[in-house]
Simulated scan of single mutants.
Amino acid sequence: MKWLAKQKPADIWDEAIEGPLGDIEAAERIRAICAAATASAAGSARNDRQDSERYERAGRVAMEIAMKISDGLVRDDAVHRIVDLCMMANDIKTAQILFRAIQASWIREMVQRDHPALVQ
């Protein structure tokens, strides 16, 4: 009775990207990935193995997309969203590395205000 079994929908970060993304499209995709991975990040913080794997895949794909963004402010905003996701998952090491990559001072200040643990 396979035809009655519900198929699990694919995660947004597992979907193939057709063609090159512009900076705005890449930032929108990162925003969607981070929003979709929020529950997995929270589960990852609780040491749920399946949620940890989903969070790690989502974060990896989001970081790969962010590296291809050419506009500095758009990239910094996208990295800010990924840092928020990392902090939700209690992945401080990755969040600190990404925090150092943010170039815009006002975005760095906003991240510091939201996550003071990154500065320590």
Rank of each mutant, 00 (worst) to 15 (best):
Q112S: 13
D11M: 05
D91Q: 08
D11H: 01
A5N: 00
R100P: 02
A89G: 03
C34A: 08
A89D: 00
A41L: 04
D48I: 07
Y55N: 13
I30T: 08
I69Q: 04
L118E: 05
P9M: 00
S44G: 08
C86A: 11
I65Q: 02
Q103C: 15
H80R: 14
D76Y: 15
A42H: 05
I24L: 09
L118P: 06
Q112P: 03
M67G: 06
K2Q: 07
R29Y: 10
A10V: 07
S52L: 12
A10R: 07
P116G: 05
I33H: 01
E109T: 15
R81T: 12
S105K: 15
K93H: 14
R81P: 08
I92S: 08
G22R: 03
G43M: 13
L98Q: 05
R29S: 15
E18F: 02
D14T: 03
D11A: 04
M1Y: 04
Q96L: 12
L4M: 09
Q96V: 06
A58R: 06
K68L: 09
A16W: 02
E56H: 11
D23W: 08
R49G: 03
K93D: 03
L98W: 09
G19V: 01
R60F: 14
V61Y: 07
S52D: 08
V79I: 14
V83P: 12
I107C: 05
A5S: 04
D48M: 14
Y55E: 11
Q112K: 12
A5C: 02
L73K: 13
L73M: 14
V74K: 10
M88Q: 13
D91K: 15
A36V: 01
I102N: 05
E25R: 11
D77H: 06
E64R: 12
L98I: 07
D76F: 12
M87P: 06
R31L: 12
I102A: 03
R113V: 10
E64S: 09
I107G: 10
Q50A: 15
S52P: 00
Q96C: 10
N47W: 02
A10D: 07
R60H: 12
A62Q: 04
G22M: 01
P116H: 08
I30G: 09
I69R: 04
M67R: 09
T38C: 09
A101P: 01
M88P: 03
